[in-house]
């Protein structure tokens, strides 16, 4: 366990060295946050209860979206990118001979990264958003607690998806294509483009159950109080289910890949 803590700490430090990039990123998040707020204001002005949200919910959702982009790495990135590079260069073969499990190593590194991004590119735009607009805050300590539980679960689900995408490189060598496809699915089905609650009919019924829904829609609904009581547990349960199922998928894929790499020599 101390090993994984130190892996995570190292990942955290690695990202913290790029101060200018972090500030630039926060600035970009804020610009997009403001743009989305004006669009949502126009929508909710005409349709004040759209998707069960009021305008304050919608504006808060806009900033939570900006906060989660880098925290869950909606567009891809984080430690799975390192894996993709090691697969491309062939160095991954060495990883299989290490005494530490590959999956645990990459999970720890990505949690370190996510912590850094949450503290910078998550919190900073939220504060800016709160200064510019009237946002809604979690209603009490229990809601805060549920939000706090929901975010790492979102990171784990997103990590497993990104890891699977990177691992596709074991079979097709270059995983950049899969990465772009996965990113477009993630951007849309996470509710970053528009909240899933606005999706029409059956599209919404399906989208809210997909793993991407756990990136933003689930934590946001807990934050906004759209989910209360048992619904909070159901939301966390969905996140937990996807996290466990996808991590198991990662482990399975790794075992198959190991056989391929170790036996065939790459």
């Amino acid at each position: 366990m101390p090993l994984h803590v130190s892996i995570a700490t190292r990942a955290f430090r690695r990202y913290s060295t790029y101060t200018a990039a972090t500030l630039a990123g926060i600035f970009t998040n804020c610009v997009f946050g403001v743009i989305v707020c004006f669009v949502y204001t126009a929508v909710w002005d005409q349709s004040p209860r759209a998707g069960g949200y009021d305008v304050q919910d919608a504006l808060t959702y806009a900033w939570l979206g900006q906060a989660m982009i880098m925290t869950v790495a909606v567009w891809g990135g984080g430690s799975p990118d390192d894996l993709a590079e090691r697969i491309r260069s062939g160095d991954v073969a060495l990883d299989f001979y290490r005494p530490v499990g590959i999956l645990g190593w990459y999970v720890a590194a990505d949690l370190g990264r996510a912590t850094f991004h949450l503290l910078t590119r998550g919190i900073a735009p939220t504060i800016v958003g709160a200064l510019l607009f009237d946002l809604r805050w979690p209603s009490g300590p229990i809601t805060w607690l549920a939000v706090a539980a929901s975010i790492p679960l979102a990171v784990l689900v997103s990590f497993s998806l990104r890891f699977l995408v990177a691992a596709s490189g074991f079979w097709i060598l270059d995983s950049q294509g899969t990465k772009v496809l996965a990113a477009s699915a993630a951007v849309f089905f996470s509710g970053l483009t528009v909240p899933l609650v606005l999706f029409p009919g059956w599209l919404q019924d399906v989208a809210v159950l997909l793993p991407w829904a756990t990136f933003l829609q689930v934590p946001a609904d807990i934050w906004l109080g759209q989910r209360s009581g048992l619904e909070v547990l159901a939301g966390l349960g969905l996140q937990l289910f996807w996290a466990v199922a996808l991590l198991a998928g990662c482990a399975l894929v790794l075992r198959t890949a190991e056989r391929k790499v170790v036996v065939q020599g790459g």
């Binding site: 349709s47 483009t193 029409p200």
Partner: peptide
């Protein structure tokens, strides 16, 4: 690689395409 080329091309199409789908969804409400 060929497979990657096509995925990148389709992905490039989709990644900006979803923005418009988003606008289209907004127009379901307004």
């Amino acid at each position: 690689y060929r497979a990657s080329f096509w995925m990148l091309t389709v992905g490039g199409f989709l990644i900006t395409g979803v923005d418009f789908v988003g606008i289209w969804i907004l127009f379901h409400t307004v």
